[in-house]
């Protein structure tokens, strides 16, 4: 969805949502409890018609317009890539935790 903690550059809304989340630790009494907040995603509900729907193609079929599942690191910018690769050369990836298959126990 992309703005689950509040609209970008709207610190008042972001603060309100965090307060509501924190208060829920006291008010929710059952596992799986859900509180619906009064905030609106956007003023216009038109986006609901397009959410999770494949785009129609001109030939009448349906386009698979999902992002490809690349298996190499997908950086936000080239500067990030260069910095991460420079760190990798000295053997560092500060704060990166890579888990091994063997840690995923088999039943």
């Amino acid at each position: 969805m992309g703005r689950t903690a509040g609209k970008p550059n709207d610190p008042a809304l972001q603060r309100q949502i965090m307060i509501e989340a924190l208060d829920a630790f006291a008010s929710i009494r059952e596992p799986g409890g859900i509180i619906t907040l009064p905030h609106r995603w956007s003023d216009d509900d038109g986006w609901k018609d397009y959410a999770m729907r494949p785009k129609p193609r001109t030939d009448g079929g349906t386009a698979d317009d999902r992002v490809a599942r690349f298996d190499t690191p997908q950086y936000q910018s080239e500067a990030d890539r260069r910095l991460a690769e420079a760190n990798s050369e000295t053997g560092e990836c500060p704060g990166c935790v890579f888990l091994w298959e063997s840690e995923a126990k088999h039943f």
């Binding site: 992309g2 903690a5 509040g6 970008p8 992002v67 690191p73 936000q76 990030d80």
Partner: peptide, 29 residues
């Protein structure tokens, strides 16, 4: 902070990471 993911629109997160990672919000609290 940076954001990368294939299954959601990254526009908001890249404009303001607090939209999906409210660390600054929690620091203020």
């Amino acid at each position: 902070l940076r954001a990368t993911h294939f299954a959601y629109d990254l526009t908001d997160a890249r404009r303001d990471p607090n939209a999906v990672f409210p660390m600054e919000t929690l620091r203020n609290l």
